[in-house]
Write a protein that binds this DNA or RNA. Sequence first.
RNA 1: GUGGGUGUAGCUCAGUUGGUUAGAGCGCCAGGUUGUGGCCCUGGAGGCCGUGGGUUCAAGUCCCAUCACCCACCCCA
Length: 421
Amino acid sequence: MSEFAAPRGMRDFYPEDWRAREALFSTWRQTAERYGFEGWDSPVVETMELLERKAGEEISEQIYGFEDKSGRRLALRPELTPSLARMIIARQGSLVFPLKWSAIGQCFRYERMTRGRKREHYQWNLDIVGEESIMAEAEVIGAAVCALRSLGLNETQFKVRVGSRAVLSELFAKSGIGKEHFMACCLALDKRGKITEEDVASLLTGEGLTPVDIERVFELLAIRSIDHVAERLGDDSPAIGQLRELFALADTLGFGDYLTFDLGVIRGLGYYTGIVFEAFDTAGKFRAIFGGGRYDSLLKVLGGERMPSVGLGFGDVVVQELLADLGIVPGGNRKIDYAIGYMTADCRALAMQAAMKIRAKGHSCDLGLSPEKAKKFFGRADKLGAEKAIYIGPSEAESEKFNVKTMAGGETAEKTIDQLI
RNA sequence: GUGGGUGUAGCUCAGUUGGUUAGAGCGCCAGGUUGUGGCCCUGGAGGCCGUGGGUUCAAGUCCCAUCACCCACCCCA
């Protein structure tokens, strides 16, 4: 074994890994195109200021930061959204909104590794910027669901949990719990099902909540349906209306079966303002497959005009692990249209002619790099996943005819060079 | 960051209370078939037993340290 390995948390892609990755990227790109998103890209390196400003000071320890030779503070991007916001703000006056943008980018994060989490990964971002209506959420989620379905997953294998920070906020206000406790309550809700109620309670006590408050939080923990929320907030609550609208739109768009209401989805970080969502495998074995939400104030925070926006991040690691667990291999096995081999150097010229003819017609063709025995060649053609194999020996070189063998069935057909394709 | 587990061939793993030359399956290479793959048979190559120290007549095996990976917790895009 070599003393060198990829740096911790960084991944090598050998050809089979690369095939799976490209198949996933291809699904992402096709889906984005199908839903009318435009592609974009930006540098992997960003200024530290942009990333810090959005994330806050604390997270900077998780950023791969460095100084360039003139002392500029730079960093490998941990996600795509700050770059997106930067690009949009730079042309906010000339871009036509709403816009729908899609990107696949490599992102870095310095942190402890666990399953489904590396220090480097690719993330598919879908964003709709400049749209107030819930149609933005519906289209973004619908596209991500579509991508997962294209990969071979169905509604028994994953669900999208939908929550709303606006609803939570209203609930807490209604229950008389101070705004300063909002994040602590969110964290407690997030722990639901993971730790005991006593532990949740002590957690909240530690945050300075009174026993009465804690009791109220536990009441909120019990809420499992939008109707129950509506009973508390009243039907005129705008946040409730938005949630109901999203579920209705999802039904009409045909992915309602994938959505479930879950107040516990809060997406930790501060910039989400409305509906938030996360997709999980039904078996509960993996981390979130994708997640996102509405962030109406991010552009303003970064110095632009306020602009209602919805975004989604979809990483490559968890979905590949989930697919592998279900026996699905994106990209499948190695495949090539033709393999060509030859017995001696004298036969090579004809083999080259055939290869160039096939390639000119747009088919893939592996041409043997050196003479090889028939047995070795056909074994190699098999491993290449060749659909057809052509082996050229002295008699073919003499007659200028090709025996084209179909690998699957084993039958051969004799062809001239003009009949090859 | 805390706790537990695992490091032996390219891969998955055996390896007895410490005892001679460290094994299997798969993969790879060659031959069986000097012009035809998959199946079968035969043979072959390939090991600093993670790394460093220690105990011992003797260490893959026991002890200590260290590194890497896995799982759970913690934290969280």
